[in-house]
Design a protein around this nucleic acid. Sequence first.
DNA 1: CGATTTAATCCACTTTATGGACTTAATATG
DNA 2: CATATTAAGTCCATAAAGTGGATTAAATCG
Lengths: 384, 384
Amino acid sequence: MTQAVRHDSMRARNLGVVLGEVRRSGPITRAALAEITGLTKTTVSKMVGDLIEAGMVAESGALRDGERGRPGTAVALSGRRVAALGLEINVDYLSACVVDLTLAVRLRYTQAVDNRRASPVETLSHLEELAHRAVEEARGEGLSIAGSTLAVPGPVDGGLVHAAPNLGWHDVRVSDLLGFPVELDNEANLAALGELWFGSVPGDFLHVSGEIGVGAGLVVGGTLFRGARGLAGELGHVVVSPDGPACRCGGRGCLEQYAGQDALLRAAGLAGVPELLAHLQAGERGSLEACQRAGQALGVALTSAVHLMDPGTIVLGGVFAPLFPWIRDPAHETMTSRLGVMRRAVPELTVSRLGGDAATLGAAGQVIHRVIANPWSHLATTRP
Amino acid sequence: MTQAVRHDSMRARNLGVVLGEVRRSGPITRAALAEITGLTKTTVSKMVGDLIEAGMVAESGALRDGERGRPGTAVALSGRRVAALGLEINVDYLSACVVDLTLAVRLRYTQAVDNRRASPVETLSHLEELAHRAVEEARGEGLSIAGSTLAVPGPVDGGLVHAAPNLGWHDVRVSDLLGFPVELDNEANLAALGELWFGSVPGDFLHVSGEIGVGAGLVVGGTLFRGARGLAGELGHVVVSPDGPACRCGGRGCLEQYAGQDALLRAAGLAGVPELLAHLQAGERGSLEACQRAGQALGVALTSAVHLMDPGTIVLGGVFAPLFPWIRDPAHETMTSRLGVMRRAVPELTVSRLGGDAATLGAAGQVIHRVIANPWSHLATTRP
DNA sequence: CGATTTAATCCACTTTATGGACTTAATATG
DNA sequence: CATATTAAGTCCATAAAGTGGATTAAATCG
């Protein structure tokens, strides 16, 4: 239900609107903010004052909007004070990053750990160490951490990791194990949001993150689509061929069996992605054909996805990012031939600029976006 | 962007919250409304007064909330004044209905017309006639029509019907042809909303409307998912078998080629749905097998849909409604065997109670839901 | 240098919601 | 049966927040 608006929540909401517009429209004068938001100059001035006091925006010199008249003093987001911690647990590494309010990446840590062999408690204690180091260093730079989000490779329900098969986790309650409060979310979801906020994609796309599994996050109008239970986006188990090879999910002919990292390497007869890349660059026939077949399977699955979810563009990330030159064309041709008549335009297929960092960045970005949407609570905490 | 809140829009929003709660919680006292919404009794009383004056709610006798104390006077939505017009153009009929604020269906008209042979102008003039008759009769009952929505069998963009292949329409601008203002929307979308508001399904489901084409509308959290360009939900062209029979969309092995009305009748060797039903009831082997194969194909497509969109339940409507007894099991078995390991529970497969009326009802319901979400504008119009 | 234009602030005012006091209408209790 | 208790609904003075016009500030133009 939409909540009732009271005087304080009216102010909270309008603060969010103003701060959001500052983010969207870069350095901008108070007068222009008033114009855009529909609030009066008086109101905007008061709010900008409060936001400056809270260290969220800062004046950034004069700015001429028109030709004549007094120039305005522009205000912009300030990265001096507020920041967020993004964390990620994946199969073979842990990572953390600190991002400030302007979405500038201030700190970044990655640590190679084999989490398949470690218990959840061990992994989380490693992570906690990493997080504490990041928070300490951020404090040293004068940043205050507004919150943190943790990306895990599997579906999440509240503070519970329902299942992360590649980690060997089942029903792990993370909030109990980590020594400070974190939000939890699926790695594929956060990677999509990372792409939205740190990549150069517009606000409507399907982000495909090919790892050992193949996940996807759909962003529509700048918002992540999660489905009824938060389990949407399992592109890896879309049916490519109903009588294809059996999949660990219980089905047959899932995309993962054609274009998942393991399937791809098996088809190429190789042991790792670096080798595969080397073979591809050398023009080795078997590897090229393996990629082509994977690309075609991806094209079939994406055809179904486009019909069902109508994404604006499609961004390939994860392993598909380095393999993009060899996967793009077969996938795109498959989609074009299948989608042609129904749509004016087949969604563009692009490559992620972020690669493996997308989820960690998205995790931090989510906290920042919450702060920007609701600066009121962060104003209140710094007040007497 | 979220819009800034001002004093008048605060009131507008709170009016919507109060009216929405009246709808949700049936007959309810002012005191309980205040409790739920978080507004004060004073504020709620004033608003309820305004809503009564506008004819949107009415007092409905005493109601005891607790054991002791003064009993409250309950208020509930009133169907006396405000109503909406729902319209539908389909291949072989036109229909119209008038629904009041309580979502009670007050009037219903259906007219068999072969719209394939008629030009858009002819069809729309028939429709206009039908609509005028409905509006006149509604006026006679003291209803004032707050707006109307028209369901068309094809994708829609603003006031433009992009393409309705089964009608032979291309880029028809409906707002120019009909003599009064109507909203436009896709038939599959409105059928899903009809199921939401007039059926007995909870707020998360995928509504599959099997006609000659197979469409689907996804409702998550009581909101229709439309995708980036409003083209989401084309379940009929999800790939069931990548090398299957060619489809009119340019692809191969689309669901429509297995479970569309035409494909199904062809497989059974029959000419119409009534005959097919008769044969099924008689236990005729060919028809039973045709349905089983269609159900299995539907199960495959729905497997992909569930992985991608994570619907709560799945509701089968359109032709699939009468065929449900013969289609449900093969579809559900296919889904269960394929989805089993990944999900705690496979989405339930249920049947629509509404059948062919879903879209027309959804069209009227959409107008009503807009009124309930924003009663302010309807208050203002009746004021000096 | 004064006129004009635009930015930002100041201040009296309006709108809306609040919260406690009051009235009303039931049941519970002695 | 009279009185206490409880809860619903209304009244009214007050507070919070935004409005809009006046004012001051800082540029350009002629």
